[in-house]
Computed example of a mutant assay.
Amino acid sequence: MELNPEIIARIDGRLDRLGLVAEEVDLAAGLKPGTIAALLRGDGALPRGQALRRLAAALDVDEAFVLGLEPGDLIPPHMLEEPQGDLGLLAPDEEALLRHYRRLDVPTRAAFGLVLARAAGPEPEPPTKRGRR
């Protein structure tokens, strides 16, 4: 989701209303120092996933408010995704799934794998290279 003047104004307004400064919100939300100051300048990107949730909690609002959504609007799925996936790391839900999977015995793991494969559907076809024979 693109950072726009309305989102900046919402964050700035919450800081004023709560009597907080940007550095306090960075600390409370577990964000890198300077994140909120950069957002208020119109630089950088909005946090996603858990960082977005922590930012909303630090501002004492919900994620939809921070994103400038109307009541009842759904939060865009990409805003709820964890940035770890971009780095090749596991998101918290993936870590939890793996942790539970590792506690299963081998036959249960095999059964789980079959159920999961069926639920996920067929594998996509790999792209073919054209021009090579």
Rank of each mutant, 00 (worst) to 15 (best):
R99T: 12
F65K: 04
E125A: 10
R17H: 09
A37D: 02
R54I: 02
E2S: 02
L39F: 03
N4V: 02
P76Q: 03
E95F: 09
M79N: 11
Y101I: 13
R133K: 14
V61L: 04
F65R: 02
L40T: 00
A51V: 00
V61E: 14
F112A: 15
Q50L: 14
L69K: 08
G131I: 13
G113H: 06
L69G: 08
R14C: 03
P47R: 02
R54K: 10
L69T: 04
G42Q: 05
A9V: 00
T108H: 11
P77D: 10
R109P: 01
L39K: 01
E94T: 11
R118Q: 12
A51G: 03
F65M: 10
P107F: 12
D43Q: 15
P5G: 09
P122V: 09
H100V: 14
G113R: 15
V115N: 12
L87S: 13
D43I: 01
G30E: 13
R10E: 07
K32C: 00
A56H: 02
G121Y: 15
G131H: 08
P124V: 08
P83H: 00
L3S: 05
L20I: 11
A57W: 04
L67A: 09
L114W: 12
L31I: 07
D93S: 15
E23W: 14
D62Q: 08
L59N: 03
K129N: 04
A117I: 04
F112Q: 12
R132K: 10
M79Q: 04
A45P: 01
A51S: 08
R53L: 12
R10M: 03
D26Y: 13
D62Y: 01
A22N: 05
L104V: 11
L98C: 12
G121A: 13
E6S: 09
R53Y: 13
G72H: 12
E63L: 09
R132I: 14
D86M: 02
G68Q: 07
H78E: 13
R133T: 15
A29M: 06
A117M: 15
M79T: 07
I11D: 01
R48T: 06
E123V: 11
G30R: 08
D26R: 11
L74D: 12
G30S: 13
E23P: 02
G85Y: 12
A110L: 14
L67D: 01
G44E: 00
T108I: 07
P124I: 08
L59P: 05
A45S: 14
G13Q: 06
I7S: 00
L31T: 03
P77L: 10
L39R: 00
E63Q: 14
F65A: 07
F112G: 05
E125Y: 05
R109W: 12
R99H: 13
P76R: 05
A64W: 13
E23K: 15
L40K: 14
D86L: 11
L55Y: 01
G44R: 02
R109C: 07
D62P: 01
Y101K: 06
R102F: 12
I11W: 00
G49K: 00
A38W: 07
L97V: 08
D43G: 08
G113Y: 07
Y101S: 06
T35H: 05
G85P: 00
